[in-house]
Write a protein that binds this DNA or RNA. Structure first.
Lengths: 147, 147
DNA sequence: AACGTATACTTGCGAAATGCAACCAGACAG
DNA sequence: CTGTCTGGTTGCATTTCGCAAGTATACGTT
């Protein structure tokens, strides 16, 4: 993936980094799925390839959106976490959820969640940020992603 | 661009449609640049290729995000406008602007605009929607008795 | 009516990105 | 020491992209 700046537009700047079919799904897994390990990202239902995943994680790390640290509990593993810049993507992801849910007739997103976002957007964003910076342990039941 | 549904996730649903480097730039041109013709999209600084542009416009039209109507003033032209589903993307685009502006040290986005978005987000969204739907698209009923 | 130009595409082709399977090295577990 | 887990890399076929050229229809000018 060759990606250099195409223009000074802030949207183009954003898309130059994560404007593809996979980057935001990996970030979604970190935000909503609370995944942190390579193999956990692979397990998301969409089936990303290992080489593409490795590439995206490196790219996001170089861009300062994701941080890679060794796992003290198992030296084979690395822990991928969001930086502050990564946490700033929560609103982007939320709007993608809102649009997708509204226009997908078969969405599993609950009306309740959408109402919360509509009525108290700031609180929802704050909530996700806090839960992530507090390093809440992985709870599979919280996942929005498939399987 | 082969794109079928990868999962039930609303984010994946969104990205299956416009998760690439060009779709959102075209939509940006419609929302912020008020462009409506094929050649206008080509003139945007990023330099999209004609075949890719044609493909994206068709894809967005089939998805019901964009509408293609003949231009009564020049029959070579078509006018591309946003549908309601397209207007629903304004919040997504705004968040991309916010993220891009915050993390691009050389952004041209004014602090004033960012403050408006922060402080009265709903109003900004409403504003763009209105300005766009005010540009009344061609409606057959309107052309019955031309001036 | 004839001619040049504008517009919205399509086509063809080399280059890049993706998807898939296989392979590999370092750690861990028994 | 052996087998397995983890996080990758490598190689290759397929798909998509980027670029240049070509085409069909419509317009504007003379």
């Amino acid at each position: 993936m060759k990606r250099q700046r195409r223009s000074v537009c802030p949207i183009a700047f954003s898309l130059d980094l994560f404007g593809d079919r996979w980057s935001l799904l990996v970030l979604r897994d970190m935000v909503f799925g609370k995944r942190r390990h390579f193999h956990e990202f692979l397990e998301s239902g969409e089936g990303i390839a290992t080489n593409v995943l490795a590439d995206r994680l490196n790219r996001l790390e170089r861009a300062g959106v994701v941080e890679k640290t060794p796992d003290p509990a198992d030296r084979r593993r690395r822990i991928y976490t969001l930086t502050e810049a990564g946490l700033d993507l929560v609103p982007v992801l939320l709007e993608l959820v809102v649009w997708g849910a509204r226009h997908d007739p078969a969405t599993p997103v609950t009306e309740d969640f959408l109402r919360r976002v509509r009525e108290d957007r700031e609180a929802v964003v704050r909530d996700f940020r806090q839960r992530l910076s507090a390093r809440v342990p992985v709870r599979p039941s919280d996942t929005v992603a498939p399987e």
